[in-house]
Design a protein around this nucleic acid. Structure first.
Lengths: 220, 220
DNA sequence: TATTGCATACCGACCAGTCGGTATGTTTGT
DNA sequence: ACAAACATACCGACTGGTCGGTATGCAATA
C-alpha cells in the first residue's frame, strides 16, 4: 500500500485547469438544481452532476460530504433564489396587498411560459421522492416551503384586514392553498409535457382570490 | 457456461410454495403501488419489490418485460382502482351534480385521514420523477390523470348548466383545477409528514366550488 | 406431454463514496 | 523580503456493493 513508483508518476500535466478556481461549489449547486428537477434525485448520479458542472468527483466530495448533503444545500439555495426573484419583482412595491397577491399569481403564471425544468419547483420534486427515505431532505424542503408560505401569509393577512367581514379560514390556510395549487400545476405540466392545464389551474386560483378580495367589496 | 452437473442438481425441495399459484402478477402490482408511492420509482429496486410481494425475480420478469413495464401496468391498475373507488361511492347517486362534486371533494378530504402511502397518488409521484426520462410512463400517467379529469368534467358540465350565467372558463378547466389542488395537497402532506396543510387546501377548493355553484344562486 | 408459472444463479454496468496525491493560495517566523 | 508551514481546492483511480436484466431449470396444470 506504500507508493508504487508507477502510480506516483502519473501524467506530467494532468489538466492545466483553465477554469477559475473556487467556483466548483456554485457550479455543482446550479447543476444539481437543474438536473434534479429534470430527472429526480435518485436518478441523478454524482458522476453526471460532476460532468455537468465540469468538475471532478474529488471536488464534489471536497465541498459536500454526501449526495444527500448536496441536495440539502441545493434546496436551500433554490429557496433563497426564489425568494429573491419574487421579492424583487416590481409589483412588490404596490400599496394594496390584494394587488400584490394577484400580481404574484400572475407572475407565476408568466413563468409557466418558460421551459419545464426552469419553472418547476425543486422542493416539490425533491420532497415527493425522498420524504420517506431521507428525513433531512424532507425537513429542509418543508422548512423552505413554509418559509414561502409564511412570506405569502403576510400579504394575505394584510388583504384580509381590508375585508368587511372576517372569513372563517385563516390567512395561513390561504397561503398554503396558493402554494398547493402551484405545486399541483407543476405536476400536471410534467404529465402533459405542456402548460395548458397548469395555466388553467392557476387562472382558477386567480379567480378565487378575486372572488374573495375583490368581488366581495372591500372596506377601502 | 453450459450446465455444470453440480448446478443442475440443487436442492431436493427448493420451496414447497404454499402460496397459491397464479397471483404473482397481482402481488407485484400491489407491492409496486405501495412502494413506489412511498419511495419513488428510481429508489424502488426490482429485488425489493419481489421481496415485498413474496415472489422471485424469475416471476417478476415472467410477468413484466422490464421495471418500466411494471410501472406502466401499476399506473393503469392504480387508475382503474381509483375510478372504482370514486365511482362506487354512495354520493354518486345524488341527483344534483353540484352535490356530487362537493361530496367528491369531501370524500377526498376524508381519505386524507389515512396513512400517507395510502392516500397519495401514484400517478403524480411517478410522473414527477420520470417525465423527462421515461416517456412511456409519462404518457400513461398523463392518460390516467386526464381520464380522471374527464370523469370530473362531466359533473362540472352538468353543474354549469344549472348556473344562470355562463362563466368565461370551461368545465374542463375546473376539473383540471380540482385535480391540481389535490396533487399539490399531496406534496404538502409529504413535506409536512402530516395532513393539516393538505386539508386546508382542500377546504379552500371546497369553498371555491361553493362560491361558484351555491353562493351564486342557481337556476334550479 | 406441452405450456405456463415460477425458482435460482449469475452477469456486466453503474454508483456513492474513499484515498493518495497535487496545485494554489495564505499566514507566519525570521 | 522571503521562505517555510499550513490550509484550501481540486484531481481521478479504485472499491465494495447494488442494480436491472438474463439464462436455465423444474414443477404443476391443462
Amino acid at each position: 500500500m506504500k507508493t508504487t513508483k508507477a502510480q506516483t508518476i502519473r501524467k506530467p500535466r494532468p489538466t492545466p485547469t483553465p477554469r477559475t478556481r473556487g467556483d466548483a461549489r456554485r457550479r455543482l449547486l446550479t447543476a444539481a438544481i437543474r438536473r434534479i428537477r429534470q430527472r429526480g434525485y435518485a436518478n441523478t448520479s454524482v458522476d453526471e452532476l460532476c460532468a455537468d458542472a465540469g468538475v471532478t468527483k474529488g471536488a464534489f466530495f471536497h465541498h459536500f460530504s454526501s449526495k444527500e448533503a448536496l441536495a440539502i444545500a441545493a434546496a436551500e439555495d433554490f429557496q433563497s433564489s426564489a425568494m429573491d426573484l419574487f421579492d424583487r419583482a416590481p409589483h412588490r412595491k404596490l400599496d394594496d396587498p390584494v394587488q400584490r397577491l394577484l400580481a404574484y399569481v400572475l407572475q407565476r403564471r408568466k413563468l409557466l411560459r418558460g421551459e419545464l425544468p426552469e419553472f418547476t419547483c425543486l422542493l416539490g420534486t425533491l420532497v415527493q421522492e425522498t420524504y420517506a427515505t431521507h428525513p433531512a431532505i424532507r425537513e429542509t424542503c418543508n422548512k423552505a416551503l413554509f418559509e414561502h408560505i409564511d412570506w405569502l401569509e403576510s400579504d394575505v393577512r394584510a388583504a384580509l384586514a381590508r375585508l368587511r367581514t372576517r372569513p372563517r379560514w385563516s390567512a395561513k390556510s390561504l397561503a398554503i392553498h396558493i402554494v398547493s395549487v402551484l405545486q399541483g400545476a407543476f405536476i400536471l405540466a410534467k404529465a402533459q409535457s405542456g402548460t395548458s392545464a397548469a395555466i388553467a389551474s392557476v387562472d382558477h386560483l386567480h379567480r378565487y382570490l378575486e372572488t374573495i378580495f375583490v368581488s366581495a367589496r372591500s372596506r377601502k
